[in-house]
Every structure is written in C-alpha cells, then in structure tokens.
C-alpha cells in the first residue's frame, strides 16, 4: 500500500499522441493510472515554463508526447519541442532534478500499444528514481 505512486504530468498533442491514448482506451490496453494528461494542439505549444511549473508543483515526472518526426500536423512543431526538451534536460540538474524525470516520446494516433507501454515504462523509471526532490518543497 505504501509503495510510492508517482505523480506524472503529461503534455500531449491533440493529433497523434492524445489520439494514441484514445486508441489505447478503445483497445482496452491496461496501464498504470499515474499520469494526468494536458492536451495541447501541438507539442509546439510546450512552453518550457510549463514543464518547470509541473516540477515546481511537485510532479515526479513529466512526459511530453507528440507526432513522429515528419508527421506533425503543423510540419515541424515536434522538432521545436524536441529542442526545448533537450534544453530542459540540461537545465533540470541545476535545479536538483534528474533529467530522466523528463521524457519525450513520439506516439502516433495508431500506436495505442506504444502509448500504453510508454506509460508503463515511464512509471517504472520514476518509481526507481523515487519521489521528486521538489515534492515536499511544493507544499
């Protein structure tokens, strides 16, 4: 009972990854219930400040998921998100947060399977890392 249950915030684009999540649902694929998804039209909308805000609020992990490269509905929104995530990964250790707590994944609308396995995998990773060092501070 007292096993650590990570709190995860996920930012997903409407066209691919969020839809991939819908497909995981229609296909009744089971995965752990730790993530709370915030839908964006495209990962291009991902302001790095959103990720920092999520960590500041005590999130144990942040998942960003968008269309595969080349499939973005707005051509290159995901490339922009990729750069921002790379930048954040360098910044996070400065704040005492392990960069592994931030994950970027491309999940298409057809990849319900990949959606579910990403959820499982990420929850595992965060469980190993333990609670975010900022968790208490957020309160």
């Amino acid at each position: 009972m007292s096993e650590f249950e990570p709190k995860i915030i996920a930012f997903m684009c409407n066209w691919c990854s969020y839809a991939g999540g819908d497909l995981a649902g229609t296909s009744r694929l089971q995965y752990p219930p730790n993530a709370r998804i915030i839908r964006l039209m495209c990962t291009a909308r991902l302001d790095p400040a959103f990720v920092l805000k999520a960590f500041a609020e005590g999130a144990d992990g942040v998942l960003v998921a968008g269309c595969h490269i080349g499939d973005c509905h707005y051509v290159s929104g995901n490339l922009k998100a990729e750069k921002r995530v790379q930048m954040l990964k360098k910044l996070l250790p400065e704040l005492g947060i392990e960069p592994e707590r931030l994950m970027l994944r491309w999940i298409s609308a057809a990849e319900g399977e990949r959606f579910a396995s990403t959820m499982k995998e990420f929850v595992e990773i965060i469980k190993k890392l333990g609670p975010s060092p900022l968790r208490g501070a957020a309160k």
Partner: peptide
C-alpha cells in the same frame, strides 16, 4: 490554450 488555462490545469493536476 492560454498560459493561464494551462497553468491552472497543471496546478489542479497536482493538488
């Protein structure tokens, strides 16, 4: 999809 709307969701997700 304003900043405020998204921040509000992040906060609400966490507490």
């Amino acid at each position: 999809f304003t900043d405020e709307q998204i921040y509000a969701m992040i906060e609400a997700a966490m507490r």
